[in-house]
Amino acid sequence: MTTPTLHTGRLLLEPYTPADEDGFVALFQDARVSRWMGDGPCAESEDRALFGRIFSKVYAQELFDVWAVRQGGRLVGHAEIKPSPSPDVDGHEIVYALAPAAWGQGFGTEIAQTLTSYGFDALGLTEVHATVDAENAASLALLGRIGFRHVRDTVEDDGSTTRVLTRSAGAGNAGADQPR
Results as ranks from 00 to 15, higher is better:
106 G>T: 04
23 G>R: 04
68 A>V: 06
177 D>H: 15
152 R>C: 14
67 W>A: 00
127 E>F: 04
34 S>W: 11
39 D>I: 12
156 E>V: 13
22 D>F: 00
152 R>F: 14
12 L>G: 04
20 D>F: 02
135 E>T: 12
8 T>V: 11
139 S>N: 07
14 E>P: 04
1 M>H: 14
91 G>S: 08
38 G>R: 07
119 G>M: 08
124 G>Y: 13
96 Y>N: 00
149 R>I: 14
179 P>N: 10
149 R>F: 11
166 T>Y: 00
70 R>I: 06
2 T>S: 13
156 E>A: 05
118 Y>C: 01
92 H>E: 09
170 G>V: 08
150 H>N: 10
101 A>N: 10
52 G>C: 05
173 N>H: 15
26 A>W: 02
49 A>P: 03
84 S>P: 03
174 A>E: 04
58 V>S: 02
118 Y>E: 01
151 V>I: 15
37 M>F: 12
55 F>N: 01
49 A>M: 05
47 D>C: 10
151 V>W: 06
23 G>I: 03
80 E>G: 02
17 T>C: 12
120 F>W: 05
88 D>Q: 11
42 C>H: 07
93 E>S: 08
47 D>K: 02
84 S>H: 04
26 A>V: 02
83 P>Q: 09
121 D>T: 15
119 G>R: 02
162 T>L: 08
167 R>K: 07
159 G>M: 14
172 G>L: 10
128 V>I: 05
68 A>H: 02
146 I>A: 03
123 L>K: 12
135 E>R: 15
35 R>E: 03
57 K>M: 13
123 L>R: 08
63 L>V: 08
152 R>T: 15
121 D>K: 13
179 P>T: 05
110 E>Y: 06
52 G>T: 04
42 C>G: 10
166 T>E: 12
131 T>E: 06
40 G>M: 04
173 N>P: 02
122 A>L: 05
94 I>Y: 01
101 A>C: 12
25 V>D: 03
141 A>T: 13
87 P>Q: 11
46 E>K: 14
126 T>F: 14
52 G>W: 01
133 D>H: 11
142 L>I: 11
101 A>I: 14
125 L>Y: 07
57 K>L: 10
52 G>A: 07
81 I>S: 00
74 R>T: 14
25 V>Q: 03
10 R>V: 08
90 D>K: 05
5 T>L: 10
19 A>C: 05
108 G>I: 07
117 S>P: 06
176 A>Q: 10
130 A>M: 08
88 D>H: 05
131 T>R: 03
142 L>A: 03
75 L>D: 12
90 D>V: 13
125 L>I: 12
151 V>A: 12
58 V>L: 15
145 R>Y: 08
8 T>S: 04
78 H>M: 07
163 R>K: 12
97 A>C: 13
175 G>D: 10
52 G>Q: 02
116 T>W: 01
